[in-house]
């Protein structure tokens, strides 16, 4: 191998190392929401939480706020509405939970 070829190979190798190191750094700093990413192991901390609870459900917050502070509004009826929201959610998933218990008892 000539001197020039050796120098070229050395430069390429150094460049490759630099690129590799940069890529590793970028990957480590990248906000890719992988399950193993340590920053997303805390409950409700992550981009999905911000997206769903910050943006998608925002009209629901406005709706509930308007039930209490809008004109006309009534505290008792607002609570009735909130009761429907909470109660129906509970019935929906509570029913599934009961079904799960039944399946567990009958089949397993």
């Amino acid at each position: 191998m000539t001197l020039a070829a050796t120098a070229f190979a050395s430069t390429v190798s150094a460049f490759a190392s630099t690129v590799s190191a940069a890529a590793s750094t970028a990957l480590a700093a990248s906000p890719v929401p992988l399950a193993s990413s340590p920053e997303y192991t805390l409950p409700f901390v992550g981009p999905g939480t911000y997206l769903i609870f910050g943006i998608v459900l925002a009209p629901v917050y406005a709706m509930v706020a308007a039930w209490f502070v809008g004109d006309p509004s009534d505290r008792a009826k607002g609570l009735l509405g909130v009761g429907y929201l909470a109660g129906l959610t509970t019935v929906l998933w509570g029913g599934l939970f009961v079904a799960t218990l039944v399946i567990g008892a009958v089949f397993f």
Binding site: Y40, L42, F44, T49, L51, V56, V60, L85, L88, T89
Partner: peptide, 24 residues
């Protein structure tokens, strides 16, 4: 934990919300 990054969990969340809103 999965609602942080799983579209499947977003789906379950909003469909629940949607069902409850419609029933209300």
């Amino acid at each position: 934990t999965r609602v942080q990054w799983s579209p499947l969990m977003w789906d379950v969340t909003v469909i629940t919300a949607y069902f409850v809103l419609t029933a209300t």
